[in-house]
């Protein structure tokens, strides 16, 4: 009986999904007139990209107004308006430069990577490190994830592959102490960039949030003005909880931006639109694979295009 319900359901789900996709493509790519049902389809598509109910409704409202004013006539112009709106949001309000090609502060220029478990912090650090190495910078990695089994080894493997130094202590060590040592080492060895790994932690764990706050505070004590960037690493498959994560990490350690990982899958990572809208945090990089080269500076325009481009 139960199996019957579920399988019947699955079948109809598949149909709905095909139907909606086809309809949207017809509206957005064609010359079809933009009517109310087209707008609803558009909203549905945004929701399916994890943009969220509220933000999706707001974005669609922009198009609806455009239609009412006669500025938007067909699918193509609706799509352009939408792309512009999304682009405007994800650029963030504080997107002043800071990415891989921006001038470094310090030395060392200290970047802390934070995030919940399994989003790809360690891999992202390796990729960012590799990019700086390619620019001829001296890179030092701090193995601040002292909790997860194998995390220090994982970072050490990457350090060797990209030709960076690493500062580590034993498993279970205090991550703030690792960070402090790393800043000292970076200064002593004349490193240009210090990338600080931290253990994955859920934003709801008060004690772990206090711990990462201490890591950031200690870095600031060891080197006034540091850390120069505090990046939240976010998995593109994350749903609405991503906004809560960003808000909690931001209020605890003051984020400067986001890294959106695993964008090589089918997930669109639309939650960053909400984060940009509510917290003004820009996306710095996107991760697009497991290789060291699979990291790109974020480009708001092409992201927005991809959101409404093919499915």
């Amino acid at each position: 009986m139960r199996g019957g319900i579920v399988s019947r359901w699955r079948e109809s789900l598949r149909k709905t999904s095909d139907l909606v996709a086809a309809r949207i493509d017809r509206v957005l790519l064609g010359e079809a007139r933009v009517d109310e049902s087209a707008l609803e389809d558009l909203e549905d598509r945004l929701i399916q990209a994890d943009v969220g109910v509220r933000t999706s409704a707001e974005l669609v409202e922009i198009v609806r107004l455009g239609v009412a004013r006669g500025e938007i006539e067909n699918g193509e112009s609706a799509r352009r308006a939408m792309v512009r709106a999304v682009e405007g949001l994800v650029k963030g309000s504080s997107s002043a430069g800071a990415h891989i090609d921006a001038p470094l502060q310090g030395p060392p220029h200290v970047i802390v990577f934070a995030g919940v478990n399994g989003v790809g912090k360690t891999t992202t650090i390796a990729k960012v490190g590799a990019r700086y190495r390619a620019q001829g910078r001296r890179v030092l990695l701090a193995a601040g994830d002292t909790f997860r089994a194998g995390a220090v080894d994982q970072l050490a493997v990457w350090a060797e592959r990209i030709g960076a130094d690493i500062v580590k202590q034993g498993a279970g060590a205090d991550s703030a102490s690792v960070a402090f040592d790393a800043v000292q080492a970076a200064r002593a060895r004349g490193a240009d960039v210090l990338l600080v790994d931290t253990a994955g932690r859920l934003h709801t764990k008060t004690n772990l949030m206090e711990e990462i706050k201490k890591v950031v505070r200690v870095i600031g004590k060891a080197l006034p003005g540091a850390p120069h960037e505090v990046l939240l690493v976010l998995d593109a498959t994350t749903g609405q909880n991503g906004l809560v994560q960003a808000r909690e990490f931001h209020s605890t350690i003051g984020l400067t931006g986001l890294v959106l990982t695993k964008l090589d899958g089918t997930a669109k990572g639309g939650i960053v639109i909400q984060i940009a809208r509510d917290l003004g945090l820009p996306v710095r990089y996107v991760g697009t694979g497991e290789g060291l080269d699979d990291l790109e500076p974020f480009d708001a325009a092409s992201y927005a295009e991809a959101l409404f481009g093919g499915s």
Binding site: L13, I47, Q48, A49, D50, V116, G118, D235, T237, T238, G239, Q240, N241, G242, G265, T266, A267, K268, G270, I271
Partner: peptide
């Protein structure tokens, strides 16, 4: 599967 997964959970 990550309990925080969004809309993509279905496709994956």
């Amino acid at each position: 599967a990550d309990g925080m997964t969004g809309q993509e959970a279905v496709n994956v």
